[in-house]
């Protein structure tokens, strides 16, 4: 692969399978076969330094598994994750600010931990000063370091998680649904904080969310996932101006729009199939209004000659998407 000086993360053909077979005895007695769940099924993307790439998709599409593969919490079953930065300077922010902070530790100690791990010889006074500074950076007060996590609200806890992540002097942050557990007004505070920090510290984000409006606000590039694969990847502006994949279009059509209240629309039919037994060919074909024979047998790839590797869809290759989806959009 040719070297891209500006890429901080290159993910290539990434796969992760989980064995979800019944226990051995059941398999023998009930003659059940082994079953594998393909949580991530051949995913490629590149993140440029200082940018935000967002993974969006519905539950079970594999976006959180990718976060865990990138941070090394899971080992890949296939493919590769190449990180061109300092491994020690990769940090993660989790969704649940109640589960991700040690309830027995004071906030100051929680924030100091990555610092002490990264530079064990730092004198206590320097650590304390740095913790105070970090608390101020995320909009808390230095005296909050003496408190325990339970004394804070959800939004404040997420700020603590961010301060802890920043303590590791990160260049790359993996954020797995960082605001999903928060109320909208608090979400706005946290998102603004994350954007400000990115600018000030030149951070790179891998941002995982199910919320397209949040992703639109945060990301430079958006990858839409469906059943363990990226079906479309585009710069944010292009994705919203000209969504290519039928799934993306349906998804955009489904999200409630505040600017168009009381809209009557036809919701997308069907449900996300189980990743244990995904449909043949393109896994979206049973729900796709444009599916034709080829989609049922063959699996579409993102190819250079089709919209410059932005979309994995046969209908887009034949051009049916352009005309066919216009009709569905007007319904």
């Amino acid at each position: 692969m040719k070297i891209r000086p500006n890429a901080i993360l290159e993910v290539d053909g990434l796969e992760r399978r989980f064995d979800v077979s019944a226990p051995w005895l059941n398999r023998v007695l009930e003659r059940k076969p082994r079953r594998t769940l393909r949580a991530v099924d051949g995913v490629d993307f590149i993140i440029q330094r200082g940018q935000t790439l967002a993974l969006v998709g519905e539950s079970g599409c594999g976006k959180s598994t990718i976060a865990r593969l990138v941070t090394g919490l899971h080992a890949p079953s296939g493919g590769s994750v190449k990180f061109h930065g300092d491994r020690d300077r990769m940090q993660m922010i989790f969704q649940d600010p109640f589960a991700s902070l040690n309830p027995r530790w004071r906030v100051g100690r929680i924030i100091a931990e990555p610092l002490r791990t990264l530079r064990p010889d730092t004198p206590d006074a320097v650590v304390a000063a740095r913790v105070d500074e970090l608390l101020r950076t995320v909009g808390l007060s230095p005296s909050d370091g003496q408190k325990f996590p339970h004394e804070f609200s959800g939004g404040q806890r997420q700020r603590i998680s961010i301060a802890r992540a920043l303590a590791g002097e990160p260049e790359f942050l993996v954020c797995d649904e960082p605001t999903s557990a928060l109320d909208v007004s608090v979400q706005a505070q946290v998102l603004n904080l994350m954007k400000r920090l990115q600018k000030e510290m030149d951070l790179t984000y891998l941002f995982i969310s199910h919320d397209l409006s949040v992703v639109r606000h945060m990301a430079d590039v958006i990858a839409v996932m469906y059943l363990g694969r990226i079906v479309e990847i585009q710069p944010t502006k292009d994705l919203f101006a000209n969504p290519l994949h039928p799934y993306t279009r349906l998804l955009l059509d489904t999200i409630p729009d505040l600017e168009a209240p009381k809209r009557d629309r036809t919701p997308m039919g069907g449900e996300v199939p189980s990743p244990v037994s995904p449909p043949s060919g393109c896994s979206f074909h049973p729900r796709c209004p444009l599916a034709f024979d080829r989609c049922k047998v063959e699996r579409p790839q993102r190819r250079a000659e089709v919209h410059n590797r932005r979309v994995a869809c046969f209908a887009c290759e034949t051009g049916a998407a352009a005309t066919g989806l216009k009709e569905t959009a007007d319904v």
């Binding site: 909208v184 007004s185 397209l212 409006s213 639109r216 955009l252 999200i255 600017e259």
Partner: peptide
Amino acid sequence: AGLMGSIPSLRSDVEELQMIPGA
């Protein structure tokens, strides 16, 4: 008004979301 402003829009671009200070 603050609540509506703090929701990221699907149509228009804002650099910063409107915030309601405090909780």
